[in-house]
């Protein structure tokens, strides 16, 4: 048992680093994922992941596998798309999903065009699928810093953020913090996706945010509990995913996301809050 569950991490430093990275990602990303889900913005995260890809790729093409260049490129692309789409949605009649789609498609096309000009490169796979088993000090620090910033920022914007989700008209009537809150939240999403892509790749980074959040929805009804549970599920996914990858030799990033997917499937089946079990095996109704 010990050999199977603990020794991979006790013996190998790269596994410990991967675990630390996965836990930090869970801490920052899962709460953001819960809010994305509750605001019906689940696919926004996915679109943003696509938008970040070209930024990171451009950084990579100019500076190689340079942490700073790729991070800066990803953040620049992500923030441009998020803020641009948000501003257009708020100042015109266009819905945010449509303006986001317009922005991220342009960003993606631009990125692919730039990459194609420079020819293919096998290292680009790192950008696409991440390198969770090869996190160096700088990357680990970046991921931990992003988790810290995320938790602090969420604490700061908690009240207006919740209020904007439940009753945006009320928030608008008592305060002008709606727009800045929304922008800070979008920035947190971008930061976490950028942190995630170093470990899991641009396309899978959104998985560690959304899957645990969606799973948690099936177990608890209250917001704080939902966030705590989502963080826990994301951490378990990271741990089990790394174990799975270690023992089977499968790629680590997809393994983590697949474990999160299995937890999600289990929650859909068994979760007491609207899960399928309740649907197919209905319990007898209560008296009041």
């Amino acid at each position: 048992m010990y050999d199977y569950l603990i020794s991979p991490f006790a013996e190998f430093e790269f596994m410990r680093r991967a675990l630390a990275g996965a836990l930090a990602l869970a801490l920052g990303g899962a709460p953001v994922g819960v809010f994305l889900m509750l605001r019906r913005m689940s696919l926004t995260g996915d679109a943003m992941a696509h938008a970040i890809l070209p930024g990171a790729a451009v950084g990579f093409l100019f500076a190689g596998l340079n942490l700073f260049a790729m991070t800066a490129g990803g953040i620049a692309a992500g923030v441009t798309v998020a803020v641009g789409a948000g501003l257009i949605a708020r100042s015109t009649g266009m819905k945010e999903d449509a303006s986001l789609a317009a922005f991220y498609l342009v960003s993606l096309a631009l990125g692919v065009l730039i990459v194609s000009l420079r020819g293919s490169n096998i290292d680009l796979l790192h950008v696409l699928f991440g390198t969770v088993l090869a996190l160096d000090d700088a990357t680990l620090l970046l991921i931990a810093a992003i988790a810290t910033v995320s938790l602090f920022s969420l604490a700061v914007i908690w009240r207006p953020l919740v209020l904007e989700c439940v009753d945006p008209n009320f928030l608008r009537s008592v305060s002008r913090s709606g727009a800045p809150t929304h922008l800070v939240f979008l920035a947190l999403m971008v930061l976490n996706l950028v942190g995630g892509f170093h470990a899991l790749g641009t396309l899978l980074a959104v998985g560690i945010m959304m899957l645990p959040a969606a799973a948690a929805r099936f177990w608890v009804k209250e917001l704080t509990a939902m966030i705590v549970l989502a963080i826990g599920l994301a951490m378990i996914s990271g741990y089990l995913g790394l174990l799975l990858s270690y023992h089977s030799g499968a790629a680590a990033g997809p393994a983590i996301i697949l474990v999160a997917g299995i937890l999600y499937a289990g929650s859909v089946l068994l979760g007491p809050v609207g899960g399928l079990k309740r649907h197919f095996v209905p319990a007898r109704h209560l008296e009041a």
């Binding site: 509750l38 700061v156 914007i157 009240r159 207006p160 919740v162 209020l163 989700c165 439940v166 009753d167 945006p168 008209n169 009320f170 008592v174 305060s175 913090s177 608890v220 009804k221 209250e222 917001l223 939902m226």
Partner: peptide, 25 residues
């Protein structure tokens, strides 16, 4: 115009009325 599927308690919803006095923190 209110999202009633949002997981928030009656108590917290009512407490929002204190916004102008309590603010952010």
């Amino acid at each position: 115009e209110i999202d009633r599927s949002f997981p928030i308690s009656v108590y917290d919803l009512v407490a929002m009325g204190l916004w102008r006095r309590a603010g952010l923190f």
